[in-house]
Design a binder for these strands. Structure first.
Lengths: 184, 184
DNA sequence: CAAACCTGTTTAGAATAATGAACGGCTTGT
DNA sequence: ACAAGCCGTTCATTATTCTAAACAGGTTTG
């Protein structure tokens, strides 16, 4: 949680143009409750926080996911040679959109040397990921199911499923992949 | 909130294969706290709920947004020849992950014949989009800025900015692109 | 069989959050 | 000037949550 409950609430309340008392009235709590929460002197019960948010109105899910963002307008183009390499052993990941704010997609050019893989342990993380093989062949294991994909073949799976990538062939392998929310 | 805090916690805990005591230990609370919360006999403070979730581990945002849509697991692999073509005049879009539920990313294999383009009118829609040129050359215009990209080059922009794609070269052009939220 | 070890639940008391009524500061209107 | 209104904050009391320890049921171990 990048933002405290206290900060989030104060931001949301003031953004809505409500005073502590006014919000309290709408929410069915007292103004002191709001005050104490916003000063981070108490940690509200989920029940009371829910009541408070109902006065804005906003759901708990929205409350905990909202973020303060600022706009910016950088160039939309990313030349091949300017993409930073963020890969590892025998693997190169090049990120499209490096440096952009509020990026929702992590789009990667992935390069696997022959024999290279993502490691002995299966990967597992939040989000979804997908990709297309552009060159070479890659052996992909997802949730116990293994397949060998070639140029033009695609994949799409929930990143929480244990997965692994391996270049089992003799030639380098290129993949364009996307995942969201971004892992890089 | 479609799901009670109590239900969510019990589902998440059991799904993680943890007992109340084990989770309590990891979270630094007592087992009775977990029990009472799961029985909905108390509404935990945000502070204690956060502690509990840290033992899973999971953020408050994830906790309140997660949903139980756990249908049968479809295959994560999409062979090249099975991807449906959803393109237009001189253009072919092939979708990776066709038929999946709750897809957050629209990953496309795009094929542009020489001279083909996305039309006279600029495109503009919700979301973000990005891609990498795999073969050939494409002329991309975003918010008045035009660039010609070749293999390995990437782009990333807000889909609301007026944009247009055109294959200005003599050879077919292939692009792997991603956009979110999905337009297909 | 029974002792040991799980599981989730319950209870009294300690710790914490929420209330209701104050307070001080600032602005508006008479 | 001064009262009336708003603002956010503070404090003693009340209400709720959290803890520690015990309870009840099921499974494993000797």
């Amino acid at each position: 949680m990048s933002l405290e409950v206290s900060q989030r609430l104060r931001i949301l309340r003031t953004r809505s143009g409500l005073s502590q008392r006014e919000l309290a009235k709408r929410a069915g709590v007292t103004n002191s409750t709001i005050s104490l929460i916003e000063q981070n002197r108490v940690s509200p019960s989920v029940a009371s926080l829910k009541k408070v948010l109902a006065g804005i109105p906003m759901s708990l899910a929205e409350f905990f996911t909202f973020d303060i963002d600022e706009p910016a307008r950088p160039s939309p183009f990313f030349p091949a040679e300017q993409m930073p390499d963020i890969g590892g052993e025998g693997i190169a990941y090049r990120l499209v959109g490096h440096g952009l704010k509020d990026r929702q997609i992590c789009l990667l050019r992935e390069h696997y040397d022959p024999g290279a893989d993502t490691g002995a342990d299966m990967l597992s993380h939040e989000g979804q990921e997908c990709g297309v093989v552009v060159r070479g062949r890659v052996e992909i294991t997802v949730d116990g199911e293994t397949r060998c994909l070639g140029p033009g073949d695609g994949f799409y799976f929930d990143s929480k499923l244990p997965h692994r990538f391996r270049n089992a062939g003799e030639e380098p392998c290129e993949i364009i992949s996307a995942n969201s929310p971004p892992s890089f």
